[in-house]
Design a protein around this nucleic acid. Structure first.
Lengths: 358, 358
DNA sequence: TTGTAAGCGTTATCAA
DNA sequence: TTGATAACGCTTACAA
């Protein structure tokens, strides 16, 4: 006789306790336990309530989110799709979002596209299958169908940094136009006159287009009261370091005694410019001015220090998650746009007469 | 008469199609559809099979992983717990793991501790609740109970970079001892004699302890045939830049004409050393040699280039996920250790007579 | 205030 | 080979 049948053996030894186990242990029905869990304060006799409470504690019970999701149709899960986890910007967003989600009791499901924007649809499908309640999308946004899919699932969507074409969704981003002006004005005030905006291939990526457009219009506007000001744009790719070198050389040629400078559109591009400078043997500040988007931890220590435009990345992530969670709580507004300002971090790379390096 | 009842209206308009919808559409039972899904090649009349296939396509049906998880007791989910997503090492691991998981049809659930190691237990609980099938842990491993929890759930665990105290689990990591020797030998061969190993607070973190121990034993062993070789260790913290400066100054003093050098235990520490050098006005190579763990994208561009020890981070992540997936497939071996070698990237910071910077 | 029972979307066991 | 049917762990009418 293995176990005397007097005490109906409390719970299967090692598996997670279920609501049924708790009910048995407390001598009540499953419904009662469920009520205790979900409507604690209402409709409960103190006596019963404590019995349930004790049983829950005794069995270390916690409800299965899976079963809850199945029943309720939602999951306390938020789907985050990023173009690539290798991108520090995405990571910062991830970090902020993760924080906000944890505070609100959500868990993040991550899908990284590995820079293959074709897979955006796949990502959304996979995430939707897990009943995520909403999406945060930090992708290129070139797969319009994909984002539409998300909306079609009837789930709220927040776009970070990159707009999707004609999508009705909340949008959280840096104020690109303002940030570009910040950088460009800083350079012109420092005396630089031949400006080059270097971006990753602009394609149809909204943030890149916005920055480029803002740059052009700054040049147009400022050309009036700034003698000799001129600007152009260069699209840089991973492998074409030759092209970049060439662009830099011809920039300096064009300058003709005026001071040449570069605005780089993100940290990746900045690093490419840094590499090019090393190849060319030029010095930041004197040979070439630089303001770069994204203030990284290493920016202060390259050459005379790299002037950069800091994005409130983590804040962006937090806000994105916040927006989404508000929607999940029932907020019903037309799509919002939240634009955060960048901050200029002036350093040596935008000082024309760089003092000799110590 | 809204809809003629001849065709039993195929499926509720907008919601996800369920297996019941498919069954109805194909005129078969749910069981048959399920069989088609799971045991495709066996037990199916071609006729029926195609009918089901067509219905599935027509309704764009895909099974709900939630329901499957509930029924099967597992979820195609893998839980990844990292100490902090801000750590580039963790991100690289994440990236590798994510890739491997996607290839094997798993999805990653991420929980970042935000450097609060107390929350490791919480993380494992949360993830376990979602029926993740296994864990990849890249945490400090000071909360022993937590990891034990994971094991108690009966789910396989893979540890990355940091061992947990007496835990029976697969372990994937850099060959720390070998890597330290690589760096230290490089430094001594370059002529440096007064060595300082700088680590984050060693506490009980396994990788830090291993590196420190390896450093000490290298010094011991090498002191025999290397005249004047001496080594010590310094633990650096975020806010104590004063202490770091002091440690560097006294290192140089101790050197007494011999060449002083530093081995920094990760990228974060390296950056602190870089900052300290800027404060002190010293130059890498000549004033102080440096070899740093982690070869970052910016390493080549700081000062004369930072000599570093590259870790195969992404590979570590991929292997970790791989290990886990093998276990999930039923592999039943005693805990394995997989150690990958680091690679030395020699640059200017370990050349004593640094040529004047161009 | 509590319990009974149905059902969420699957899979697995049994008959047919 | 196929179809009922009973779970999986939970929530929620509806009854009591």
């Amino acid at each position: 006789m293995p176990t005397p049948k007097t005490k109906p053996s409390p719970a299967p030894s090692h598996a997670r306790a279920t609501i049924a186990d708790v009910a048995r242990e407390a001598g009540v029905s499953k419904a009662t336990v469920s009520r205790f869990l979900n409507h604690r304060e209402t409709l409960l006799t103190p006596d019963i309530a404590t019995r349930v409470e004790v049983a829950i504690a005794a069995l270390a019970y916690s409800p299965s989110p899976m079963a809850q999701a199945l029943k309720r149709g939602h999951s306390r899960l938020i789907g985050l799709v990023v173009a690539d986890v290798g991108n520090p910007f995405s990571v910062a967003v991830l970090r902020g979002a993760e924080k906000a989600c944890q505070e609100a009791g959500y868990l993040l499901m991550l899908f990284s596209l590995g820079n293959d924007s074709q897979r955006e649809g796949e990502a959304i499908q996979a995430l939707a299958a897990y009943q995520v309640e909403g999406f945060i999308l930090n992708t290129l946004g070139r797969d319009d169908g994909a984002a539409a899919d998300a909306a079609r699932h009837g789930k709220p969507v927040v776009l970070v940094d990159r707009r999707h074409h004609d999508m009705q969704a909340d949008f959280v981003s840096l104020d690109n136009a303002g940030a570009v002006r910040l950088g460009a004005r800083h350079l012109t005030q420092a005396g630089y006159r031949e400006l080059l905006f270097i971006s990753e291939p602009i394609k149809n990526v909204s943030s890149r287009m916005e920055r480029d457009a803002a740059f052009r219009s700054f040049i147009n506007d400022a050309a009036a009261d700034t003698a000799g000001l001129h600007g152009s744009t260069f699209e840089s790719t991973q492998d074409d370091s030759e092209g970049l070198d060439q662009a830099l050389r011809s920039l300096r040629q064009r300058a003709q005694g005026r001071l040449p400078a570069v605005i780089s559109s993100n940290a990746v591009v900045t690093l490419r410019v840094v590499a090019a400078m090393a190849r060319l043997g030029w010095r930041f500040g004197s040979d070439l001015g630089l303001v770069g988007f994204d203030d990284t931890e290493w920016s202060p220590y390259i050459g005379p220090g790299l002037t950069s435009i800091a994005q409130p990345t983590e804040e962006l992530g937090r806000l994105a998650a916040g927006c989404l969670i508000e929607r999940l709580k029932g907020l019903n507004l037309p799509p919002r746009q939240i634009l955060l300002s960048g901050r200029l971090m002036p350093r040596g790379s935008s000082i024309p007469a760089a003092p000799p390096q110590a």
